[in-house]
Simulated scan of single mutants.
Amino acid sequence: MSWKTALTLLLLFQAPLLLTIWMNNDEHNGVFVASYDLLVEVQVFNNGSRTWDLSSTNVIKEVVSQWAFINTSYQKGYVLSVKVNESECKYLLSMDEHGNVVVTPDLSSICELRPGDCFVVTYLFHIDVLHPKQVIDLDLVKMGALHGELSEKLMQYVKPVGLWNWSSWSNFLEFKQLALKFSNKSSNPLDVVFAIVNWFDQNIKYSSQSIDPIAPSEVLKKRRGDCDDQANLFVAFCRFNGIPAYTEIGAIYLPGFKDSGKDDVVKYEFINVGYHAWARVYIPLESGGVWLPVDLTFYEGKGVYGHIEGAAILKSNCMLNVKIVDFDYISLIKKVKEQMRELGGFWHEKHVMRLGNIRSRSVVLSPHLALTFSMVLSLFLILGFLLAVRRIKLRYRQ
């Protein structure tokens, strides 16, 4: 067999695999390498003087409902079970336009809750994580970054809505003057993002003194806040400068970690899991565009690059729970707690995470791994073909 014939056979054998690689060649190719189970237990106590009719007391549904882990290109989330007082129950899944999923249990088995009584809702969530999630090279992004018009779909990420309705802030003028400084030296959106990150490093201190999130205007005023407090203010600065941005909240598996917080209406307890928040910003490129994570408080690396290339969400032990795009979750939390105080209610929320078994059977090979696999497979096929041809020739000679 000539070398030309062998090369032709090699290409023929490889063609289907090479086509598969080309069709699946995106920044999220990888394999499922990590799996986690999250047990969430919510106990609700009636410490008041009146009996609660659970069918008409909407705030109780707000208290016991949970965000499920949403499906993305780098993770798959499952709701394995929902129980009320240790018995399996029906539940409702509600999804918004951003992929956020709320799980609401059916409480019809309880009907009412008398003073001094309590009930418990238990969730079991499962998450499979793909790795690598996103490979970021900021030097390449910076070379391709440009300032152009935004599509209608992206415009929702620059609107001053929900948490970011800055016109109603008492310190709006201070916010506006500061926000304009970030873009007065460059119109390149990545340069503006870098300038905002540098300002946070120099002016905002990490603080987690309250179990309740702080409004962006208060973070600006007090110059301190925890992960989601800082991320929300960062998003405000980006949106004011026309850069699409929103906040993401997720869970990090931290074996051995324990934390808790309590006030007059709620107690939170976390075992082997910590909740974290970061920003997502959109950088338009000549080739399309990219959503970059910006982690202001829990990252690896130094300088501006560390906040992006070393963001916690890029690690396999961090999972996305909810995207905050256009609603004010801080006001929602305050409203729920105020209503629980009026009822004389209290709830205890306990989150425990552990390693699980991978349930997602679909595996996507990275381009380099798939190419290597196809080359080895093709060589074996060609060798087998050549051996078969040789045997046939020997038979004819005999």
Rank of each mutant, 00 (worst) to 15 (best):
G144N: 05
T20I: 14
E286S: 11
M353G: 01
A370I: 07
K83L: 15
G144I: 03
C111M: 12
K159L: 13
K323P: 06
F32N: 02
K267H: 13
K90N: 10
V158C: 00
K185N: 15
K262G: 11
A251K: 05
Y123G: 04
K185G: 14
L379S: 11
P105N: 04
L381K: 07
G116W: 05
I243M: 02
I204T: 11
E27Q: 09
A215D: 13
Q14A: 14
D53L: 09
H348P: 06
Q156E: 12
M143W: 02
E152L: 10
G116T: 00
G306D: 08
L54F: 04
V389D: 09
P255F: 00
E342P: 00
S362V: 15
D259R: 05
Q209S: 15
L11T: 03
G301A: 03
V141P: 04
L371C: 11
F125S: 06
L369E: 04
N272L: 08
A34H: 06
L371I: 06
G242Q: 02
H276K: 07
P132I: 03
V135L: 11
N241G: 09
M319E: 05
R223G: 14
N241K: 10
V42S: 03
G310H: 02
L320D: 05
R239H: 01
W347T: 02
Q75E: 07
K315S: 00
N317D: 06
L381R: 02
S360N: 10
Q202C: 14
R50M: 12
Y157N: 01
S56C: 11
E41G: 02
N188I: 11
V265R: 01
V265Q: 02
H131W: 09
A245V: 10
V121A: 00
H368P: 03
L124T: 08
A231G: 13
A145I: 03
H131F: 10
S183H: 07
V102Y: 02
Y36K: 09
V120N: 08
F182D: 09
E152H: 08
L113M: 09
H98I: 10
N241A: 10
L178T: 12
I136V: 08
R354N: 14
V192C: 13
F237A: 09
S207V: 05
I127V: 14
L383M: 15
R223L: 15
V193C: 13
H351Y: 04
S331I: 09
P216M: 11
L54C: 07
V294F: 10
R341V: 10
D53T: 05
V63Y: 01
E149W: 00
K350G: 06
F327Q: 10
L379C: 13
H126Y: 03
Q75M: 05
L386N: 04
P293N: 08
